[in-house]
Design a protein around this nucleic acid. Sequence first.
DNA 1: GGGTTAATGTAGCGATCGACACAGAAAGGA
DNA 2: TCCTTTCTGTGTCGATCGCTACATTAACCC
Lengths: 200, 200
Amino acid sequence: MGRGRPRQFDRDEALDRAMRLFWTRGYQDTSIADLTDVLGIGSPSLYAAFGSKASLFRAAADRYEAGEGGRPFAALAAAPTARDGVEALLRGNVALFTKRGGPRGCLLTRATLSCPPSDTTVVAYLQRSRRDRLAALRTRLQTAAAAGEPLPSDDVDALAQYYDAQVQGLAVRALEGATRPALLRTVDLTMAAWDALSTR
Amino acid sequence: MGRGRPRQFDRDEALDRAMRLFWTRGYQDTSIADLTDVLGIGSPSLYAAFGSKASLFRAAADRYEAGEGGRPFAALAAAPTARDGVEALLRGNVALFTKRGGPRGCLLTRATLSCPPSDTTVVAYLQRSRRDRLAALRTRLQTAAAAGEPLPSDDVDALAQYYDAQVQGLAVRALEGATRPALLRTVDLTMAAWDALSTR
DNA sequence: GGGTTAATGTAGCGATCGACACAGAAAGGA
DNA sequence: TCCTTTCTGTGTCGATCGCTACATTAACCC
């Protein structure tokens, strides 16, 4: 298999720990020293395995989106109706943002507000990620509209941006320390608004 | 008046420029070198006038809240009804977050997500500021409830947190580059939801 | 003008940032 | 066994971080 000296750490586990650390402290406030400390490896090993801080973050964010972070959006797409999907998206994100023992809030939202513009590759990654999430919302609502489901508005684009704002608001409040029940009451209001606007 | 050598810069103007810079780049990504550059003064003058980066930020944030940043909340308190107040709060914040030639988003929201926990005085300031804003929302809704105005929910506390989340969502989206018309469509939906939930 | 007080410009402090040079260590292939 | 290849630990690079010592300059009071 490998020709040279074998790697002495589990790359996936290291990536997972890096992801948790970026999630906890944001992008800029997570230093290479912090990472090598938590990962238990030297900085040359980190750079050999991941290239740079920026590319390590992108790999960690990929892992976030492919795992926990992507689950609420998977639930959105899989739900039988758009209403169920949006509710699953919001409640799933509340659970994600307030999980016991885990970092609070959203890794991507936090990074978006704490990444210096000079790190262009990270900024570009975050922009693409945001576009993808908006597109996921829009397409789910679009298919619902095509299926004749009742929606709170005919403007699917505006709806997608509206529910994206709900998610971001929940993420910020979770980071500020809002409790899970408090965030769920906010989701209750958002879904009550869906119903009140849809039945006309 | 002054005993020693007079200050060679306008303290208020310097504070205003510092506020704009913190608003544009967040707390952590704004360095003392950036500040002395934009303010046109040396670092000893900055420290003599403002004490430290943390206390300069708090002074700049005070200026933000007393000026532009506080206007939407002043409109909330001054409006004849809670509905008008919330709408003025949201639309005022959209205008603030997308003002041409000015920084995008909210100075406080951005700082909340980009301030290292080690800067305890700034963290404490931001927490208190957030509590105050939530309290402003809650008391306005409370007086409306006492006056018998129709509200989207009987749970005033949940309502306050819900509209706080709306503001934060708008702030994040503005920072991500959302246009003013797009954010206003989101506010349209939020206010349509108010009406649909209030008329029962 | 002298003396006092305060703000300024230069220059640099120790610490930390992201990233890497270098040599030693551990594997496979011959 | 020796060579090649790859990873690991030590040490450190130049740059930047927030911050300040020091001498100088410019105002006031007398």
